[in-house]
Design a binder for these strands. Structure first.
Length: 651
DNA sequence: ATAGGGTTAG
């Protein structure tokens, strides 16, 4: 028998609901419940289900269950309320049990279909494959597959299991597909990396909506097909903030941070309000570019719009941005300001931020705070820590961290973690040990592991080890120009000119292009970009070139000797010195010397690793011209002051 | 009741 609502006047029901909606604490909730029992409102289906769902929302799942048990003959809708709560809770298994229990209690299955999406979601969430198949079986028997809500949920569940072929079968069998069915299949294929199949469905589907477009943009972006993402982006005239965010992150994933930033600006111009995810992705682009002014603007925007820093990634994105723009104090400031509501990402960003500045000891201190506060570190925390030790030359501490992560935190190291350890040992000159780790680790060595050995070999002048490492790295990443260049440098240094020529022609044959060096500098709020021997704003090229000449001759007085050992690939002997002096970071530095006042610090961002000559050049400039110079290269920060660099030659 | 976007990583 259905609980009667006729016994309760409508007024009372509405009153109870209003009370529930205003309710702020469990104590209040209990009072309302008591009143509802007194007036027999608990017998009213609608009021009772509201009560159950409010219990769930305020975190009192237990209370919800006890309320539920006092309801006589709960109807499918009340079951549904609690099932949904269980699905969203940390214990979705309960949702499946309650569903099974409901089936044994109900005589009439009318209304059961409302619970099916929740139950299927619960199965997917806890990867309960067998249970999921059982529910699927029941759905087939009871013909609920006719209900697109139900069928779509079955599809979603199989996708959650990673079984696209099962999902596809349901998709093919279901009597009536709606736009959600198509979109679900498309995202399923995209998650598998099967863009062609996804695109096939996208082209074939009868009526696309925004979700379809956004999913394709996102999918293309993630698999490195930026042009195709752009194509889809251009196909739809209606765009929402997610469309823009998808395109921004597509640019980001494909290493076009400038385009990502431009896209964000365009979005703002059209009056679209960025939300947290949009801001997080643009912050990441800004961090890549090192555009501190834009970063500060976004920070101010977040503050004025009162966007929460605690949940989500806003805090970590801000910390990361400030650290990568060289403003560690601001990163720390954000980090401190969220001290009571930090998530793991906030800690990780702070630790990695300190790592790129070479502040290994501080990073370890932050980690100790984390341990004191019982925050469970994850694998990224340890990548940051190992990197911090590596850049800070802290060999023992790094090895200790590596042990700690396995023994105390039971984290199984990935190939990246081994890469860090190899790098750590290699940099510190323990080349044999580094090779030992590489040979004994439970993974095939990847490019980065070999590149770590390669740069350690070069630094510690072991040509044979370097040659071997370079050859292995080239095998694994034939498109990466840096390994060819380093190898040919090794050959050149040994006078093996035939081999130098061989490498050069190999590069030509494989059309491996060198990535052009590029540096940027911020002067009076404007970013200026320099390539080798050329300013993007060509008006100032000549002025910069003559300034470099001045600086070089002044430094030569102080004992500067151009280090020609790294310009061995393409150039004749007499061209080497002038080519060296045209490196983009020297151009940017000269521009900074011309256009900033005496004693003002200079910040430069470079896309590649800084070369040895530029490094000693800038050290000297910092002393002779009495300037603090901060350079971010591909790997880390260099803080130059009074002739010294913070990296202590660890780079 | 079912589908879409986000950070930190050698």
């Amino acid at each position: 028998m259905e609980a009667t609502s006729s016994s309760c006047p409508v007024m009372l029901v509405t009153q109870a609901i209003t009370n529930l909606e205003k309710c702020k604490s469990m104590t209040e909730l209990r009072q309302i419940h008591a009143l509802m029992i007194k007036t027999n409102l608990v017998a009213n289906t609608f009021a009772a289900s509201k009560l159950v769902s409010f219990c769930c929302l305020s975190g009192g799942l237990d209370h919800a269950v006890s309320v539920f048990h006092r309801i006589q003959n709960p109807n499918p809708f009340i079951y549904f309320t609690l099932i949904k709560c269980f699905t969203d809770s940390s214990n979705p298994l309960e949702s499946i049990s309650l569903y099974a229990h409901m089936l044994t209690c109900l005589e009439d299955w009318k209304g059961v279909e409302f619970s099916l999406p929740s139950v299927l979601k619960a199965c997917g969430k806890i990867k309960a494959f067998d249970e999921g198949q059982q529910v699927h079986g029941q759905i087939l028997k009871t013909h609920f597959l006719f209900d697109p809500f139900v069928a779509n949920s079955v599809i979603r569940m199989y996708l959650e299991f990673g079984r696209v072929e099962f999902a596809r079968q349901v998709f093919d069998e279901m009597p009536e597909r709606d736009v959600i069915s198509w979109n679900s299949m498309i995202t399923g294929y995209l998650r598998e990396g099967d863009v062609e199949l996804a695109r096939g469905l996208f082209d074939e589907m009868p009526g696309r909506d925004l979700v379809s477009y956004n999913a394709m943009i996102d999918g293309y972006g993630k698999c490195g097909k930026c042009e195709l993402a752009e194509e889809i982006f251009g196909m739809t005239s209606q765009k929402d903030v997610k469309t823009w965010t998808s395109m921004i992150s597509a640019y980001l994933h494909n290493h076009y941070p400038k385009k990502a930033l431009d896209m964000f600006r365009e979005m703002l111009c059209l009056g679209i309000q960025p939300d947290a995810p949009a801001l997080v992705s643009v912050l990441s682009a800004i961090a890549d570019l090192g555009f501190i002014e834009e970063g500060k603007w976004i920070h101010a925007y977040i503050s004025t719009k009162k966007i929460k820093m605690s949940n989500g990634f806003i805090g970590s994105a801000l910390i990361d941005m400030y650290a990568k723009c060289g403003h560690l104090e601001n990163a720390f400031h954000v980090f401190r300001s969220i001290s009571h509501k930090r998530n793991i990402g906030d800690w990780n960003s702070m630790i990695s931020g300190l790592a790129i500045h070479g502040l290994g000891t501080v990073a370890l201190e932050v980690f100790h705070d984390m341990e004191r506060m019982d925050i469970e570190p994850d694998e990224i925390t340890f990548l940051g820590l190992l990197g911090a030790c590596s850049h800070g030359g802290l060999v023992d501490e790094g090895q200790h961290c590596f042990k700690l992560m396995q023994e105390k935190y039971k984290i199984v190291p990935k190939v990246q973690h081994y890469g860090c350890i190899i790098d750590l040992l290699g940099r510190a000159g323990h080349l044999e040990d580094a090779l030992g780790v590489l040979q004994n680790m439970p993974f095939e060595a990847d490019v980065l592991a070999w590149k770590a050995i390669l740069s350690a070999s070069i630094k510690h002048e072991n040509a044979a080890a370097g040659e071997n490492a370079a050859l292995r790295a080239i095998e694994l990443a034939p498109e990466d120009s840096s390994c060819y260049v380093l190898l040919s440098n090794i050959y050149a240094k040994a006078g093996r000119w035939d081999d130098v020529a061989k490498i050069r022609s190999m590069m030509k044959q494989r059309t491996v292009g060198k990535i052009p060096g590029c540096s940027s500098i911020l002067v009076k709020g404007k970013v200026h970009i320099f390539l080798v021997g050329k300013a993007m704003d060509e008006n100032c090229t000549d002025e910069v070139l003559s300034k470099i000449k001045d600086v070089v001759s002044r430094l030569k007085f102080e004992g500067y000797e151009p280090d020609l050992t790294q310009v061995l690939l393409d150039v004749e002997e007499e061209g080497k010195e002038s080519l060296l002096s045209l490196h983009s970071e020297k151009m940017a530095l000269a521009f900074g010397l011309i256009n900033t006042s005496h004693g003002a610090p200079i910040h430069i961002v470079k896309n590649l690793r800084i070369c040895r000559d530029c490094h000693s050049f800038i050290k000297l400039v910092s002393r002779v011209y009495n300037r603090r110079i901060v350079v971010r290269d591909q790997n880390r920060f260099h803080h130059f002051e009074n002739g010294f660099c913070s990296c202590k030659e660890y780079w």
